[in-house]
Amino acid sequence: MDRQALWLTLRLAGTTTALLLLVALPLAWWITLRASLARGLVQALVSLPLVLPPTVIGFYLLIGFGPLTWAGRLITRTLGHPLAFSFSGLLAGSILYSFPFAVQPLVAGFKAIGAEYSEAARVLGASPLRCFFDVTLPMARAALLSATVLTFLHTVGEFGVVLMLGGNIPGVTRTLSIAIFDQVQDGAYGAANRTSLVLLCLSAVGLLAIYTLQPSTRRGRPLPYAG
């Protein structure tokens, strides 16, 4: 078992999930406020990684972060090193690749909440931001849980983007999915089996969490009010 790869994978997935949720929450809220061409365009862009081969995303990011583009040159000048083949580069790639897994469940969750709840909060004097944190977000807890788990698991299982953008540098960019690939290449099926089992268990536990920890409001348990 490659403990270094396990730690790197968990660190990458955790950081990606945390950063992505910070961006995905306001973005998903903005998308659901009303229908418009701009919102449709943003949603289509966000969903691109769902249909694009990961190698295509990896390729474009590799070129984009490299010395051939002005953005790549600016990043290299600012950071002192190119983004490609580094943990930061892997993180940027993971964020882009997992974007739809964070945004889509949230958009679906926010859309499922009837407008009457936010209207009720507004006519009680709550500002749109308070309304979001007090009403919309708590009511979309199930969607938030799904977005968190799916983003985390999707990042854990990433292969194409990681290989294209990060290469296979032990301790820096070698994640568990790359380690399995290496182990199979080396004919170490026992090790590959153990690593695969870890990923299988992680995925199963995550999905179990989505389907069993759905918040219920029908239990008659008064929730603590932080008013």
Binding site: G114, A120, R122, L124, G125, D134, T217
Partner: peptide, 27 residues
């Protein structure tokens, strides 16, 4: 939210994640 006008709509739209007391003391 800045009008100082309260509206009790036809559909009560109580916040389902808050108890009755949580709803009443919301604002």
């Amino acid at each position: 939210h800045r009008r100082g006008i309260r509206l009790v709509a036809q559909r009560p739209a109580l916040f389902p994640h808050l108890s009755v007391v949580g709803n009443v003391q919301y604002r």
